[in-house]
Design a protein around this nucleic acid. Sequence first.
DNA 1: ACACTATAGTTGTATGTACAAACAACAATT
DNA 2: AATTGTTGTTTGTACATACAACTATAGTGT
Lengths: 140, 140
Amino acid sequence: MPEKYLENCLYFTVNKLSRVITKMAEESFRPTGISPTHGFLMMLVNNKPGITQSELAEELHMTPSTITRFVDKLVVKGLAERKVQGKMSHIHPTEAGTEIQRELEKAWKDLFRNYSDILGEEEGKALTKATHLAAGQLDS
Amino acid sequence: MPEKYLENCLYFTVNKLSRVITKMAEESFRPTGISPTHGFLMMLVNNKPGITQSELAEELHMTPSTITRFVDKLVVKGLAERKVQGKMSHIHPTEAGTEIQRELEKAWKDLFRNYSDILGEEEGKALTKATHLAAGQLDS
DNA sequence: ACACTATAGTTGTATGTACAAACAACAATT
DNA sequence: AATTGTTGTTTGTACATACAACTATAGTGT
């Protein structure tokens, strides 16, 4: 196993890319005061006030327990609130949550700009498409 | 922000793919009793007994503190031992560590087979190359 | 109305990984 | 030889995320 063979392992390269781009995303979202994933969650809530946690889990491809924790955090930060209704939790933005939306969109756009500038816009899009496709195929 | 726009975000798709393929890798490495990353670490040690932790960090693209912890685990499991020499730690396989090598290689091959069968071998390789390239470009 | 199953969410716990600060050993410079 | 800077490793702490087990509510068939 000569060392550089690692580069030929999808597990490896994807994980490295994940670490790198996560760092970029954290950078872009830093001004908003929340992490990228929390930011996406917040945007989804703003986009559809009253969305349930299972819907969020589905959109974000994350487990319900993770969503519970993320929503907890948004609530603690005063950006969202839970309206429990029967067995369902509907998540609504607070005023602060609504206000932060522009900033989040900007952060997101910045992130896109940043990696597109480095990778090339078309290449970035192609890679995004390819990873999306592969994730879908492998997830079964 | 219509929901499915998330699919157009590299941060998102890569993270999802990372979760999915990590799960596959854990599956493949389960028979070995250690996790994929520990497996790669072990293979590197077998490949070059006496390798230092910084070398390992470099190969694996991980931080030294992470390597410390991973090596700790291999040591606890009796697969490797540290020979501290001055400020450097040289990592050597134990007998058990040497013995596990075949199994690790098999696990790795299985992983490759598994995702190649689903993605198509050429497509898998292309994706691997693309992610490797992108990670390199973005990491600066 | 009652028992059974399915669905939504929560909680405890574990893993992988990072960063920052500390520490230890070595190197270079005065 | 003492000082200062550099390099390799470790430790404390933190975060994202998952799984398994649990609770609570809803729906269904008898």
